[in-house]
Design a protein around this nucleic acid. Structure first.
Lengths: 220, 220
DNA sequence: AAAAGTATTTTTGTATCCACGTATCATCAA
DNA sequence: TTGATGATACGTGGATACAAAAATACTTTT
């Protein structure tokens, strides 16, 4: 285990939470599928109880739904819900760029350029880590805003849409417009106009929503 | 039990969650105070376990902090965190009014006028239910946006700041500017310009933050 | 044959129990 | 008197066991 992680003697509940969240992010479970506490507990070698507690938090995050006496099922998104999440993201991440702007120096801009390059490479190689690079891009802007709660909320939304992002990226081999849009966000950031950068970010995010909307299961 | 509530055979965990959340909202527990699962379990006649599960959700909401092997303490806000919450509220509720606008008809406006009147009366009588009326006002606008997740996130933030709102309102007997500001929001809504209404709402919320900031415990 | 009611089985929800980690207090030394 | 160190007690976290609820399958009746 590298020393980069403080590793504060992770509790079993924390381990279960990470485990299931990771599986959900990678789309290992399909929407509507039931999550059996005993199975998951067996997978990571613990009893049902910490898993159940983890379910509560996952339900708070909107990743699963927990109905009384009916257990835990993976929360799929309707088209409306997907759009709603992108609307929320647009204002939240818009706020993040606006707050991040005064904290970005020239060195930071160079880092962003490298990030865009890595995204480009990841996009062409077709590996699924384009999604990770993409989150890195948005995550870095959020981090620069220096607002812990804002960062937390935005990253929670990214987790919810991650499986759909993966399906979307796997499906579209054509080089989509994301590259220019992200470059546009950085350009707006360079301009020094906070409200303009906010606007560009909002449009970028809202523009992505319809592209993903095709990949939600139409039945729900 | 009135039939107004579906009452889907509330689980013990749900009951514990509501119970503690309510106590927290009313400021019955002070920030930093430890919450003993056994005590709370005894208060509502159940075992510790459902209470512990409720703690997980309350921690997700940011109402308590849960450190491994150190139990559950009430989460106080620093000044920075309070400002951050108001920043997030400003964009979230700004989005809500923008989305709500097309759904508001004349009948709805009259309802709003009655609401403002009730807030005024509650404010003068000095009862603590001005806070409730105030939440009703913001809540109604959110509800009209017809966005379940947005509504949920906003109301979660309202719960976090509610104890400070109560202290603030109890402390300031002078009739503050809130009345005009809320009327201004409605006026902007009547104007039919979504972005203008969004702007007014953002300014209203950001303007409230410094007024409350005085009441957070300065030590933290 | 179909529908309804009952019984069985599966699974959730709750309580009790045990072990480990943390905090507090007392005692001893400087 | 003050600081450090150890012991004791309390409280948290996890596991197992038990009870209740729901889903399913089967039987019976119309």
């Amino acid at each position: 285990m590298p020393a980069s992680f403080p590793e504060t003697s992770a509790t079993a509940e924390e381990e279960a939470y990470r485990h299931v969240q990771r599986a959900l992010r990678f789309g290992r479970y399909k929407p509507g599928e039931r999550l059996i506490p005993e199975e998951i507990a067996a997978e990571i070698g613990m009893s049902r109880m910490p898993v159940r507690e983890a379910f509560r938090r996952l339900a708070s995050d909107g990743l699963v739904v927990l109905r009384p006496n009916r257990g835990c099922v993976v929360a799929g998104l309707t088209v409306d819900e997907l759009y709603e999440i992108f609307e929320i993201r647009s204002v939240l991440e818009g706020l993040a760029v606006r707050l991040a702007m005064p904290r970005i120096d020239e060195e930071e801009f160079e880092e962003f350029d490298r990030l865009l390059e890595r995204m480009e490479r990841a996009g062409q190689s077709g590996g699924s880590d384009w999604v990770v690079r993409h989150q890195e891009f948005h995550g870095r802007i959020c981090a620069l805003s220096q607002r812990p709660k804002l960062i937390h909320q935005i990253s929670a939304l990214h987790v919810v849409i991650e499986p759909y992002m993966r399906i979307w990226f796997d499906d579209c081999d054509k080089p989509h417009s994301a590259r220019e849009e992200h470059a546009a966000v950085i350009a707006a950031l360079r301009s020094g106009d906070g409200h303009h950068a906010e606007q560009v970010m909002q449009e970028h995010i809202l523009g992505t929503a319809p592209l993903l909307a095709e990949f939600v299961s139409p039945g729900r």
